[in-house]
């Protein structure tokens, strides 16, 4: 009984020392090109006026960039899920408490 497999507890995918599979340089360069493109689109809203459409569009692009970086550059997609869990708890709590706090100031009403 002393060889109980612990890994299942954390949804771990592999045994002990096994390294996660990390893609090659070319893949990361491709991702960086996409990020650059998104940034270009974001900045273009400064010159091209989208009206009420701008804010949601910007927020969506921001979110995509955010997750591309943490999932791919920071390896969350390939790594042990425990890392994701730890980070997402912090991220989720931050979004939750600060949005609630701002809403008591009627921040989102305006």
């Amino acid at each position: 009984m002393n060889t109980v497999d612990e890994h299942t507890e954390h949804g771990h995918h592999a045994h002990g020392a096994e390294e996660p599979h990390i893609p090659k340089d070319s893949y990361f360069i491709k991702v960086a090109l996409w990020l650059a493109l998104l940034t270009a689109l974001e900045t273009s809203t400064y010159w091209i006026h989208l009206g009420g459409f701008a804010t949601p569009a910007l927020l969506i692009m921001m979110t995509i960039k955010f997750f591309m970086i943490i999932m791919i550059f920071m390896h969350l997609k390939f790594d042990n899920k425990l890392f994701s869990l730890m980070f997402y708890i912090g991220l989720g709590l931050a979004i939750f408490v600060y949005c609630v706090a701002l809403s008591t100031f009627q921040f989102f009403a305006s």
């Binding site: 009984m1 109980v4 612990e6 507890e9």
Partner: peptide, 10 residues
């Protein structure tokens, strides 16, 4: 999380 003795499940 990491340093538990073998068999010490959560």
């Amino acid at each position: 999380l990491n340093m538990r003795a073998p068999g010490m499940k959560l």
